[in-house]
Structures are given as C-alpha cells and as structure tokens.
C-alpha cells in the first residue's frame, strides 16, 4: 500500500494526474454554484425576521466552514510532510494557505456586511469574531513564513509547526458561541437535533457549501501544481516539460 502511495504521491505523477482532475472539479463547482446561487438568491423565500438581508448566509456560512476545513487540511498535510517527507503534502499545505486566508477574509467581511444592518455594528470583539480573526493571522503568518524562508524544505517544516500550533484555535472558533456569551448566534446546522433552518433555505446553503468544496479542490490542485514545479525546477522531468513547451 505504501508503494502505491509513494508512486502516486511522487511529484511528477501528481503533476500529470492533477491536470486531469482540475477541469472536472472546476466544472462540477460551476454547476453547483449556478444551482446554489439560483436557489439562494431567487428561489429561497425571505427570512421571517431579516427579510432579503439573510441571503448573505449563502456566501458567509460556506466561507466560514471552508476557512476551518482548509486549516485542518493544511495542518494535516503539513504534519504528513513533516513526518513522512511527502513532497506533495508540503505542496498541498503551501497551496492551501492563500485559499484558507481568502475564505477567512470573506467570512469576516461578509459577516461584517451582515452584522451592520442586523446587529447594528460592523464589528464586535466577541469570542467568535475574535477567534476567526486570529485564524486569519495564522494563515497570514504561515504565508509570511513561506516567503521569508528561501529554502523551501525548511519553509515547509517551519510552516507545518506553525500550522500545528494553531490547530487549537479551530475547536475554539467552533464552540465559542456555546462556551461564552457572544453576539454571534449559536450553530444552525451542526447541532445534534434538527437544523433550525427551513428546508427551502437549507438546500441552497448545502449546495453552496458543496460548490465551495469543489472550488477548493480544483484551485488547491492548480496551486499545488505550481508549487511542485517551483520545488522541482531543476529536476529532469521539469526540463523535459520545458523542452516540450519550446518545441
């Protein structure tokens, strides 16, 4: 099993394989996005309290979910690269950081745009918002480490350790609304009993979340391909690729 893993985990195989996957993942993402946006912006009824303003949920919540999910992927990939020295895992971790930062940024900004009309404020320093902001700084710190350290192997190792140190923040973000009084409301979907959102509003939300998931899968491969090229710029197979491009 490990042989298989190492074979397909080799940078070259990954580079070729990912080329095949990206268009498919991207295509599925586009279809889901169109379905989710139609459902969320047109078909879903307005909320009984927030009217049309609640439609921000369809970008805010999937972004927030992705910001947590991508961090876990980044930390896991970082640990895999650290322990088993899998180069592709390092590339995936490095490629995940800007995406995670983007989604965290979107979750914060769309939340702010939602908070202003509904809560009456752009920002409050409650536990949920503050821990999500710390997540953004963790991503930015990781990215800064990658640019600051020239040797890419050392950068990957340092980044993995930073990512692992920050993992503690993930459960804090998730449970902050239950552990402390916050302005942010409690969980809607992930509580154990039935979700407290009407089915006609829930379906587009889940479709949008799935669309964001496929988006991440497609774009992280796209970015990891570049990271691998950069890692292997002096290897024989990259030279071959360049010869092909010249010819």
């Amino acid at each position: 099993m490990f042989e298989y893993f190492y074979k397909y985990g080799s940078p070259r195989h990954f580079y070729d394989l990912s080329k095949m996957f990206v268009p498919w993942l991207g295509g599925i993402c586009l279809i889901l996005l169109i379905a989710g946006l139609t459902g969320g912006l047109v078909l879903a009824p307005p909320d009984y309290q927030q009217g049309e303003g609640f439609r921000i949920i369809y970008v805010h919540v999937p972004s927030a979910w992705m910001s947590l999910f991508i961090y876990m992927v980044m930390a896991t990939a970082g640990a895999t690269g650290l322990i088993w020295k899998v180069k592709v895992a390092d590339a995936l971790a490095r490629a995940s950081a800007p995406l995670g930062a983007s989604f965290t940024f979107l979750a914060l900004v769309t939340g702010s745009l939602w908070g202003k009309p509904m809560w009456g404020t752009w920002w409050v320093w409650d536990a949920r918002l503050t821990s999500e902001l710390i997540l953004l700084f963790l991503y930015l710190g990781y990215m800064a480490l990658q640019t600051a350290i020239d040797d890419r192997r050392t950068a990957a190792r340092a980044g993995a350790i930073l990512a692992l140190v920050g993992v503690v923040n993930i459960p804090i973000i998730h449970y902050s609304v239950e552990w402390w009084h916050t302005l942010h409301q409690g969980p809607t979907i992930t509580k154990l009993d039935a979700p407290s959102i009407h089915i006609s509003m829930l379906v587009p939300l889940l479709i949008m979340a799935l669309a964001f998931m496929f988006y991440y899968a497609a774009v992280v491969l796209l970015r990891a391909r570049y990271e691998i090229l950069e890692n292997e710029r002096n290897s024989a197979w990259v030279c071959e690729l360049i010869e092909q491009r010249r010819g």
């Binding site: 307005p46 303003g53 970008v59 979107l106």
Partner: peptide, 14 residues
C-alpha cells in the same frame, strides 16, 4: 428589500 448594498457587496467581493 432595501439590503441591496450589503447583499451585493458581499456577493461581489466573494
């Protein structure tokens, strides 16, 4: 429903 600025900025930015 009057929330145009907030909703469309959120979607546009995303």
């Amino acid at each position: 429903g009057g929330y145009a600025f907030y909703v469309w900025s959120a979607y546009g930015l995303s």
